[in-house]
């Protein structure tokens, strides 16, 4: 059935070795510690979690910016886990990345045209109708004036720069786009423009997105399915409607309840679950369930035994010994 999925991750791990100061031993940071995840064709999978949960590392490992420590990455039915740089090239054009910071991810000395054209040069492709025509079409498609092809990134606003980043990613007609916090650096009124653009492009081009973000409101809006990560592990996966209406993992529940809702009356009536403490360091994760140190339902079993993700219904997977009862928002 792998042909249904554009991307499959099986037991993916990415560990970083970090040297301590003054030669104080090496530590291993388990940024991603064994995750299973699929992205269907034309699907948007949202990957959420707080800083240090490993969501960005997942995105970068999928792109093979990082070499995975363990596990398998299957892209479009092909195992790309161990492909070398040169062999990856053929697949790189089919998977592209959009970055968080539209200010630092575009070379300030290159014009918009050069930035997009680089994709064609690197992959030695000649789009139908020639490069300059293709570039102009791309700019138009992402809502920029095609006449601005000779301008430099600093001449654009943050939102427009993010559009340039999207145009660059689209140049090689990818199948999968890994979007790493694509709207979190943008102003509120601009965020909606970019989110809508990503929506439209998906409909027109049949793209699949792996949408990495910390903002649950945006993820809820754009995703078909949502994956909640905490300290390198998956806590819960469900379709968006299911996850937001019926969160079963205590962490998901706390996360949802922490998101402020721009509605004062609802806010006044809301019961908040306020987690105590901070995220533990991924270099030294708690034994057993990684969430056990902050969970209000913690029991002995949680500390001794790590829960494994179990599919509890066709559209819901959960890693918790003592989940919240179903049917509660």
């Amino acid at each position: 059935m792998s042909s249904d999925n554009i991307l499959e991750l099986h037991g993916l791990k990415k560990h970083f070795k970090v040297n301590g100061a003054f030669g104080r031993g090496k530590t291993v940071v388990k940024a991603v510690d064994g995750i299973d995840l699929v992205v269907g064709r034309g699907e948007t999978v949202g990957l959420v979690g707080e800083s240090g949960c490993g969501k960005t590392t997942v995105g970068r490992t999928v792109m093979k910016i990082y070499e995975p420590t363990e596990g398998k990455i299957i892209f479009d039915g092909v195992d790309i886990t161990d492909l070398k740089r040169r062999d990856m090239k053929a697949y790189r054009s089919k998977m592209q990345m959009i970055f968080q910071d539209p200010f630092s991810s575009l070379n300030p000395r290159h014009t918009v045209g050069t930035i997009i054209e680089a994709a064609y040069i690197i992959h030695k492709t000649e789009p139908v109708g020639g490069r300059s025509k293709a570039i102009q079409e791309l700019l138009e498609r992402v809502g920029l004036n095609p006449e601005h092809v000779n301008r430099f990134p600093h001449e654009f606003s943050g939102g427009q720069r993010q559009r340039i980043g999207i145009a660059r990613a689209l140049a090689l007609t990818p199948k999968l786009i890994v979007a790493d916090e694509p709207v979190s650096a943008l102003d509120v009124s601009i965020q909606a423009q970019v989110v809508n653009l990503l929506d439209d492009l998906q409909k027109e081009l049949g793209l699949s997105y792996l949408f990495v973000a910390h903002d649950l409101s945006v993820v809820q809006h754009i995703s078909d399915r949502v994956v909640v990560m905490y300290l390198g592990k998956i806590m819960e996966i469900a379709t968006t409607t299911e996850l937001f209406a019926n969160p079963r993992h205590p962490y998901t529940k706390a996360l949802l309840s922490a998101v402020p809702i721009p509605d004062p009356i609802i806010e006044r009536q809301r019961e908040r679950i306020i987690l105590t403490g901070d995220l533990p360091s991924p270099a030294n994760p708690p034994a057993g369930c990684v969430f056990s140190t902050r969970c209000w339902k913690v029991q002995d079993r949680c500390v001794s035994e790590a829960p494994i993700p179990v599919q509890i219904s066709p559209n819901h997977t959960l890693a918790c010994h003592f989940p919240e009862p179903a049917g509660q928002a």
């Binding site: 965020q191 909606a192 423009q193 409101s217 809820q220 937001f244 209406a245 998101v259 721009p262 509605d263």
Partner: peptide, 25 residues
């Protein structure tokens, strides 16, 4: 009004299109 309409909310399910404010600040 535009700002309130343009932000997605966790408590409003359904993939309605966001009502973006056009243009730049």
């Amino acid at each position: 009004i535009g700002l309130l309409d343009s932000i997605p909310r966790v408590d409003k399910l359904g993939s309605h299109r966001l009502k973006a404010i056009p243009g730049q600040p």
